[in-house]
Amino acid sequence: MLVDKSERILTDSRTPKYLQVVNLILDEIEKGKLNIGDRIPSINETSFDFLLSRDTVEKAYNELKDRGIITSVRGKGFYVSSTNVENKLKVLLLFNKLSSYKKIIYYSIIETLGDNATVDMHIHHYNVNLLEDLLHQSMGKYNYYVVAPHFFDKDTHPVTGYELLKKIPKDRMLIMDRAVKGHENEFPGIFQDFAKDIFAALESGLSHLRKYKRMILVFPKGDMYPVEIVDGFKRFCFFHDFENLILDGIDDEPLYEGDLFLVLAESDLVNIIKKSREQGLNLGQDVGLISYNETPLKEILDKGISTISTDFIHMGRSIANQILGTEDRMPIKNPFRLIVRRSL
């Protein structure tokens, strides 16, 4: 018998009960009390011994099976198949692109997982067909699949990829960065709500925005940015009575006093800073500037560029904690905020 004292399960611990069962069995293996070929108690027996629900114990045993630590023999029970307790979780990250922001998420995931998992990463480049190929090659080889479901068809129209994503086992699937439209509550993970986020963040800085006459969103066509950003921007301008304009770029556009720019691309950010200097306009006084997505550089660039951004570090930590089971696996909206600096 592994243990017969329910006191070994700590009800006030942040570690889920099923993972406590996993850790207790691994501890017995590490101490040599369980060896390859040894039978471990049945789900019902362990449920009784630990005063836990059958579902909790079954989840623990499935975790051990996925790690290759135990195996089940039909009609006979569960047996130790490996004493390699260092067997780590295997995680596959499937990003839409590799950018400075995705790197922040990646390193946050790696740091939070620590030695508990090995992580591989592939880029699907917004292409559902490429994602299908990647999944075909990797299905069954990983404990968890983390997908950034940003997809576009050949005409750059957004697509959900739902039919493909639902083929991944639900208990192994996590979404990251955006929800699957129409299925927002179906997949666990962490996401941005682009339209609502930009509306709420701009509204939080309304007192700063009111000194400008016109708001201009620079939204490059063909760069596969979430179209919900445009929806949130338009809605904000409508509700708060801002004259507004949406541009594809600002290469040939002069700056006018009283304009406030919200830019997505780094190239447009640089162009506005250069144009403001060439035209003798002061950022934060004559012309306003908000850049989408926070980076350390923007804090010091031109004495401070205001940003509107999700929290990429938090996003990575949350995904990792859902993998580890220290956070409930459920859809979570990531924090998003306006950071006011000199340029506003």
Rank of each mutant, 00 (worst) to 15 (best):
V80S: 03
E30K: 11
L64D: 00
F50D: 15
I70N: 02
N62D: 10
G77I: 00
A60V: 04
S53K: 09
K59E: 07
R74C: 11
I69M: 09
T56W: 06
K76L: 12
S82I: 10
L52W: 00
Q20D: 08
L51V: 12
S53G: 14
A60K: 06
V22Y: 08
E30G: 01
N62T: 10
Q20K: 02
Y61C: 03
D49R: 14
T71K: 14
L19C: 07
Y79Q: 04
I40V: 08
K59H: 08
L26F: 15
Y18P: 00
G77W: 03
I70C: 04
Y61Q: 01
N23I: 07
N35R: 10
V73N: 08
S42K: 12
I70R: 12
P16W: 00
V21P: 00
F48M: 10
R67P: 04
S42F: 09
D55H: 07
K65A: 14
L24W: 13
Y18G: 00
E28I: 05
Y61S: 01
L26E: 14
E28P: 06
F50W: 04
V80R: 02
T71S: 09
F78M: 11
R67W: 03
N23V: 02
D27I: 12
S53V: 13
K76M: 14
E58W: 00
G37Y: 02
Y61T: 04
P41F: 14
L52K: 07
V21Y: 04
P41K: 07
R74G: 12
I43G: 01
S82M: 11
F50N: 06
N44L: 10
P41Y: 09
